[in-house]
Design a protein around this nucleic acid. Sequence first.
DNA 1: AAATAATGCGCAATCGATTGTGCAAATATA
DNA 2: TATATTTGCACAATCGATTGCGCATTATTT
Lengths: 338, 338
Amino acid sequence: MKKKDTLLSISKRTGFSVATVSRVLSGQAVKYRISAKTVQLISEEAKKSNYVPSLLAKGLRTSKTHTIGLLIPSIENPYFANIASIIIFEAKKFGYTIVLVDTIESEENEREGIASLLSRKVDGIVVVPCGQDPAYLEEIDRQDIPVVLIDRYFDTTSLSYVCTNNYKGARMAVNHLIDSGHDNILCIRGVPQSMPTKERVRGYLDALLTHGLADKARIVGDDFSIQNGYVETKLALSHRQHPSAIFAMSNTILLGAVKAIRESGLKIPTDVSIVSFDNNIYLDYLDPAITRVNQPINEVGMLAVKLLIQRIEKSDKVSAAQIQLPPQLIVCNSVSVK
Amino acid sequence: MKKKDTLLSISKRTGFSVATVSRVLSGQAVKYRISAKTVQLISEEAKKSNYVPSLLAKGLRTSKTHTIGLLIPSIENPYFANIASIIIFEAKKFGYTIVLVDTIESEENEREGIASLLSRKVDGIVVVPCGQDPAYLEEIDRQDIPVVLIDRYFDTTSLSYVCTNNYKGARMAVNHLIDSGHDNILCIRGVPQSMPTKERVRGYLDALLTHGLADKARIVGDDFSIQNGYVETKLALSHRQHPSAIFAMSNTILLGAVKAIRESGLKIPTDVSIVSFDNNIYLDYLDPAITRVNQPINEVGMLAVKLLIQRIEKSDKVSAAQIQLPPQLIVCNSVSVK
DNA sequence: AAATAATGCGCAATCGATTGTGCAAATATA
DNA sequence: TATATTTGCACAATCGATTGCGCATTATTT
């Protein structure tokens, strides 16, 4: 096994001091008036020996690691996987590498993960928070590790966040159903405490309200699982007068609902119309293709990284930005016109 | 902004030396005969001040970072996202954190990513290789950073790998079609150079061969995209005598094929049967649900992490392990019996 | 009580890179 | 030629944690 190269070994081999080697290899040659000849010699030796600087040592000295921590509730979920993909890509553009923590929707994992990231001295953190309490995140942000929330946020937080306007998205979805003549619309929601759920429910209710259908509101369900969609749909369809349309708050809920509808022998959209949230290529290949609200995850990811890096690189306090992006309705064939 | 705590600051506040504080906080108290009272005092102070050790300093000193580098060709791809998820989970069980690099199927990105990981002093690397040449990976492995390949491997490599037995998987799929009475089976493949593709093609051919259908072999396509599946299926269906069954080498290819089949007004499985590779929950919700070959990605991920950590933690050379796991056929309704 | 052993902890070097300061030697100026 | 500049580079401290070695105390043994 070859010895790993360090500044010291290069210094010995070239006869220059460690200081000089460092300045050459970190591009500070001009600033420190190192002669062209010396630069040449040292650079060659470094290239020849395949020198890779230790970011540990560098980070220790400079307290910058060019690393960003990313906490995601479930990387298996295609929605989050897409977001992660974009964030990794964007971060790389700016020279940052990602340490990824999968919190599995557990607040304890989130805290542990954050601790691990802090001890790794990440320069900043992007997080889809699981918990209800942003206090400790705000504390970290205040102590000079910038934190940006994505997808979910908190009612009263000073932290930066980027997310979809879930309220608008829900209104678009429900309006679409109402405009198509539906007035008996079941809403199957995800985890009730989470901000996206709350906002989508609010959108659902407001859409009904403005159309004078407030008394028709029916909200059921309690998490983002396939089972939840299945069970709630089963229940709903068991009543004599079942809903003519379903607003499913996620792809997973949608899948459960589709299964239940098919089992009961009903047809989408003839018997039951359905609108879902989140985009996914597979939705185009279901029969019928599912009308859904698309979240602009590309923009969410890009903005989050930009915000974070601004805060990291400008030491003068960049003020927190709280951004909600407009969603977009993708109309397919899962809604009938009555 | 509060000052960050270090051994030194705790040392000052408690009156003990940095050495003693270090030994207490790293659980070496007994070994170095630190008195219970001292342990108590130091631990309390550390807890109170919310001390988090710097893994940079620790890593620099001990040359262990408890970090594993993971290189994936595309985290957007649900198949890889699932693998990543498992690897993150397993690594965490052993106290390791993951630095994730998305290589976007580019060998250059892979090399860059590896360099970045090396300079971060990761303890080991798990990689789904993009390139054709394992030489530089082997070099790294030899220089004491263990490398484990997953999903793809190389013909003649000394590196450890864990992957699915793609040959077997393909045989299972094609045998299933043949057993159902099909003899005109089109194979739409992915990137031809990649090992999984080669092995699946070999399986396809051998299955035909052992049933005396060698002359019926038809292999088309050249990448793992939806477009590829679509185009090749369109072409195939345009002939008077179109294949009665399709063996699609991935979910993406499958989706393209499904689209083409639907557009031509044909029905699955009545007119065209189809079998795909890789599992995905959505496949159960297509109409009909798609019969496919499931890769044991849980086991792949777990084994990869175990192998890697064995190599990391036992300094005595653990010999390389090259493992192929059996796939499994999930029979649904996309194959007709003739 | 003297000798021996055990206990409790500190000193200081080290990992690899960065960077403010300073000192020769070379060059320019007077 | 003597002085003032500039050029080119080295010294050494520092980031935060680890660890071999050694030195006082205190406790035990004879």
